[in-house]
Each structure stands twice: as structure tokens, then as C-alpha cells.
Design a protein around this nucleic acid. Structure first.
Lengths: 225, 225
DNA sequence: CCTTGTGAAATTATTCACAGCC
DNA sequence: GGCTGTGAATAATTTCACAAGG
């Protein structure tokens, strides 16, 4: 009932919300109006009780005997995820990965406009990628302020990553998504998440080497990372 | 002591092993011969007790009063992660992301040779990317057998992802790393992990929208994804 | 009937704290 | 003195199971 109390939402739940959001968007597209936790769980590949518990952190949006209204639930999840606002992104490191991300639909699609592309390489600065001119990293502070950059994406080589992150933080960017295979540290009030290809490969290699203990990884559909 | 008993290693530990491996490689490069759990924890950005517990799953490789021998510990972790073998990778979906990954050092570097690049697009098939000619997806079964592909990386658009995964599974590939924003299901004995840009952005957007409950995400360095 | 929302139980992960060893 | 390895304690998460609502 209390809506403005500190309803702390567990991190694993937060990580599953985007999954539900995606599944619900698909359902909405296909004209489904109502969905039960059991059905949502089946499609999302998780346990039904978990779905109900997760959704209960957002509020009581279901109807006993019926389920959840797809459109309404979707709007509540989107609101909770902050998808009713825009979060301008700056990508630092315009190599192949940076370019690929700049062109990626996952970005440009709703909510995460690319506000700036930055690099230090002479040959890259000035180039146009995905409709955006690459600027020199030295212009970061200015660009971040002007464009109100909320999220910094780091796609530089590992040795530069900490320095780039420091610059992003100094420029007031308070959420960072790091793709560089490096350990990064940030001040207390900055959010940092990693996406690491080689970690993922190593984890797969581990479980392939130990088929006898692959339990946790197996068993069908699993979600997000 | 019992080395062949079912020492089940918790998944969170498995996910941290690549982090330790990376940190230890850096230490080896810089000539450090011995490291304590406290130092390793500090550099890796985790709790020292957690480091000791994680390492204890591998065996008793430390020396009380001294710490761990960097080179020896590194070799044990690498062995445990299966990095003493090669795991040939096939990348399916040679758009910008597929190309970026094909060129990525995280791959080509030790242990994960690119055995095949596959696509269905006429214009792409036959092209050479990162020293490898792109073949048509229909040749998957043949290529997978010949090259003993162990890991399939899916970088197609979401609507094709499940079909591509089904084909990989049919071709005998038993570990899959999916970059497509789709829910995928696989048979019981297949390993599946996801890397999902838009999930990561949504999670950051969530915590930016809820500064009051950002607890779990904050607090300095955090590892892998 | 059906389904939600949620306490309570079970499971899993982290952290503490210290005995034992160097 | 310093440090590992690990039981025990704590915390977090998942799952169960059911009362209450439609």
C-alpha cells in the first residue's frame, strides 16, 4: 500500500525486470491482453513464484483468478525502470565494438539516445558513425554537460579504461557500463556494471570442462546477463 | 584432499575465477611472485574472505603466513577454467557486432580460436573478416564437425536467434553465448549464457531513477558480467 | 474453479572469526 | 607477526504452500 516507503527491490529482481518488460512487449504485440504469472514464467524461463514475488515489489498489479493486464503491467515496469525518461549515452572508444554499439538497435531504440561518441585517435575524431560525429575525448566535460550525459559506455582497450572512467566521473557521469576487460574502481556514488566477453567464454569453458557439475547452468532457458 | 570427489563449485565463484585469473596475470607481468588474499581482494575489488573461500574450492594452494604463489595459483585457476585446452568458437550473425567480436582480442587471444563465421546474407557470405571467410549458415553442421566447434556465439537479430540456436544445438554445439535480446530455450544438456546490452542499460536506468535504493550497486569496484 | 500475494521454509551465498601453520 | 582455510553465523534469495479474492 505505502507507495513512497523505501520498498527496496533486490538486485536479482531488478535484473529480471528488463526480461519481463521484453516478454510483455512481445505479448502486447501479439494482442495478448492478460497474462498469469505461470504463463509469464514459462515464456521468460523462470519460476512462477519468483515472477509473482518480483512483481509484488512493484505493487499489487495483478487480479486474483485472472492474472495481470499486459498493457498496465508493462507500463508499471517501464516506469519503474525509468524508461519514461531519456538517458543520454556517451560511448568512449570508437573501435569496432564502439561502432557496433553505436549502430546497435538496443541503444538507439527508445530511451538511450547517443549523445556523444568520443575517442583520442586522430584518424577517428571527426569521422561520422551512426549519424554522429566522433569528438575528441578532451571535449568530454563540455559535451557531457551540454548533452546531460547520464550513462558512459567504455569500449576502449583495457589499459585506458580506468583513465576514461575517471574522466567520465569527473565530467559528472554517474552510471558507467564498462566493456573493457579491466578491474575498474569508482567513487561510492557512481554505478558501475561490466559486460565482459572473455569472462563469459571462460565460464562456458569451465562448465564444458566439468560436465559433472554443470547443474546450475543447465536446465533450459535462462535469463539476462 | 579428495581430488576427484564432486567438489561442486558455486556459480558465483565460477564467475569470479576469470577475474582472479586476469588480476593474477597482471601481477605476474609486473613481477609479483606472492600475493595474500587481502591484496588479491583489494585489487579485484572483493572481500578477502570471499577470495579465500573461492580459492579453497580449487584446493589448498596457499601458504599460511605467506600467501599464494602467483604463478602456481594462476596455473591452477587456468587449468580449472579449462584454459589448457582450446575451445573453437563459431560466430553466427556477421553484422557489426559479429565483426567486432571476431576482431576482438578477448577471443582470438588464448584458448578461443575462431573456427567459423556464419551468416545467411548473400552479400556477407564469402567476405573475409578477421582472416576468416564467412560461410553460409547452411554449412554449419559440416563446419561444426570438421572444426570441433565447442562454443556458438549468436549475434543475429532477435527474431532469428532461437532458430540459430536450434541449428547450433543440432550441429552438436553444447555451449552458447547469446547476444541477441531474446529469450532462448535449449535442451537440458546445453549451456546457455546471455550478454544483453539493453538489460544492462535498463538496470543502470533503474538505479539512476532510484538513487535512494542504489545500495547494492554502489560501493566501489565490482566484477564481471 | 481460477489466480494473486505473501508468510514461512529451504536453499544458497557472504562474511565473520579463529585455530593452526609458517 | 602474518596468513590460510574453514566451521559457524549472517544475510540474501528462491521456492513452497496456502489463505483470500475473483
Amino acid at each position: 500500500m505505502g507507495d513512497r516507503l523505501v520498498r527496496r527491490i533486490p538486485e536479482p529482481t531488478v535484473v529480471r525486470l528488463p526480461l519481463y518488460e521484453r516478454v510483455l512487449r512481445d505479448m502486447r504485440s501479439s494482442g495478448t491482453t492478460t497474462v498469469s504469472s505461470a504463463r509469464l514464467a514459462e515464456v521468460a524461463g523462470v519460476n512462477a513464484a519468483k515472477v509473482r514475488k518480483d512483481l509484488s515489489y512493484l505493487g499489487s498489479y495483478g487480479t486474483p483468478g485472472t492474472g495481470y493486464d499486459v498493457v498496465f503491467l508493462l507500463s508499471q515496469i517501464a516506469r519503474e525502470l525509468g524508461l519514461d525518461q531519456e538517458w543520454p549515452v556517451a560511448i568512449v572508444g570508437i573501435g569496432s565494438l564502439g561502432r557496433a554499439l553505436a549502430r546497435s538497435p538496443g541503444f538507439t531504440s527508445r530511451g538511450f539516445p547517443i549523445a556523444a561518441l568520443l575517442d583520442t585517435d586522430r584518424a577517428t575524431v571527426g569521422e561520422e558513425v551512426a549519424g554522429c560525429v566522433v569528438r575528441h575525448l578532451d571535449e568530454l566535460a563540455e559535451v557531457a554537460r551540454e548533452q546531460r550525459v547520464a550513462i558512459g559506455v567504455v569500449t576502449t582497450p583495457a589499459p585506458s579504461a580506468q583513465d576514461v572512467v575517471d574522466r567520465l566521473v569527473a565530467a559528472g557521469v554517474s552510471s558507467i557500463l564498462n566493456f573493457a576487460p579491466a578491474v575498474i574502481s569508482v567513487p561510492e556514488n557512481v554505478l558501475l556494471r561490466h559486460v565482459d566477453l572473455s569472462t563469459e567464454l571462460h565460464v562456458l569453458a569451465f562448465y564444458q570442462s566439468h560436465p559433472e557439475i554443470a547443474g546450475p547452468m543447465l536446465a533450459g532457458t535462462r535469463a539476462s546477463a
